[in-house]
């Protein structure tokens, strides 16, 4: 349990650093650390497959692309747009209201019963595969079609229109 609290502290600590870092590249690096702590959370929950997929997909691919894009665009103090005063006031006001709402909802929180897993081995890759391909086959396949359509859309956006290109 103490491991959980330590890792949870790290997750929150790094995610706060993500939004407070001045340099966008530093902020992405903190985000990578945040995702790394998520991976540890998954391992603590005995979900090895999810942990390693989170590791490969988020840390190894998506955040590399984030970093890649941020390195290409020249973000510095000179090019950053200065926001008008009223926008800042509205931002502080909106954030304050959100904080109040969160705090008041926390007051109503009751402690839930501890969740008992029917099968503690559920997160292992063999069981996860069986569940995905038996119980949840249709949603699984539909989500793959969704991803495919997103990919086709991206390719369509990236290719030049043959009429205008010529």
């Amino acid at each position: 349990m103490s491991t959980f609290y330590f890792i949870a502290f790290l997750s929150i600590f790094f995610s706060i650093l993500v939004i407070t870092a001045k340099n966008p590249v530093h902020s992405i690096l903190y985000l990578i650390l945040t995702f790394f702590t998520f991976t540890i959370h998954y391992i603590l929950l005995n979900a090895q497959f999810l942990a390693i997929v989170n590791f490969i997909v988020y840390m190894g691919a998506i955040l590399v692309l984030f970093l890649y894009t941020l390195m290409l665009i020249n973000l510095n103090k000179d090019s950053e747009p200065v926001k008008p005063f009223m926008v800042k006031v509205a931002g502080v006001f909106g954030g304050g209201i959100l904080a109040v709402a969160l705090a008041s909802s926390l007051k109503l929180v009751a402690q839930s019963n501890p969740v008992v897993l029917q099968n503690p081995e559920l997160g292992l890759v063999k069981n996860l595969g069986k569940v995905l391909f038996n119980e949840f086959l249709l949603p699984f396949e539909v989500s793959s079609v969704l991803l495919l359509s997103a990919m086709v859309g991206a390719v369509l956006l990236a290719t030049k229109d043959p009429k205008t290109a010529a």
Binding site: I32, Q48, F49, I52, F55, I56, G60, V64, M71
Partner: peptide, 25 residues
């Protein structure tokens, strides 16, 4: 012997690029 050994190797490989990227930047 972790039961996702192949994926672990894959994850480490995909992490390897950070050393190059961070150093280069």
């Amino acid at each position: 012997d972790i039961n996702v050994g192949v994926l672990y190797i894959f994850g480490v490989v995909s992490l390897g690029v950070y050393g190059v990227m961070i150093g280069g930047w």
